[in-house]
Amino acid sequence: MPTVSMTVNGKQVSADVSSNTLLVTFIRENLKLTGTHVGCDTSQCGACVVHVNGNSAKSCTMLAVQAEGAEITTIEGLAKGNDLHPMQKSFQENHGLQCGFCTTGMIMSAVDLVNKSDKLDDASIREGLEGNICRCTGYQNIVKSIQAAAKEMEA
């Protein structure tokens, strides 16, 4: 079994995993970070989104061994201690979640979207969420959450 080492939420981690272990499985089962979810098997729902070297990626569509040496951030690593990330606060403030299952991936995608965009309007946020499916909210309050967080993150 290959040994894989990476930095997850600022902590160096290392484990022996079989080559066919998905990154999401490594995160959930080896590291017990269960905030990253699995909602589909065709790489579309986005419940599993994490950041890999600062870019959002679907951890269900990556092998753990592909993340060798990478910096991974999961939802658990987004807040600074007790200080929530503006995106997390904004989802609560704007009722951007209902059942919560898609939320963690949605937040991780949203943070990357805001980080990479100069200007976001309703349409570009909606387009930017193409890789995340929510069944509860109708997206309206997710869009609102991201708009509000984007302002906060700029400031």
């Binding site: 790489s43 959002s56 569509t61 890789g131």
Partner: peptide, 9 residues
């Protein structure tokens, strides 16, 4: 192509 996450990989 695809979505933002697919484009990143």
């Amino acid at each position: 192509i695809g979505d933002a996450q697919v484009r990143n990989r």
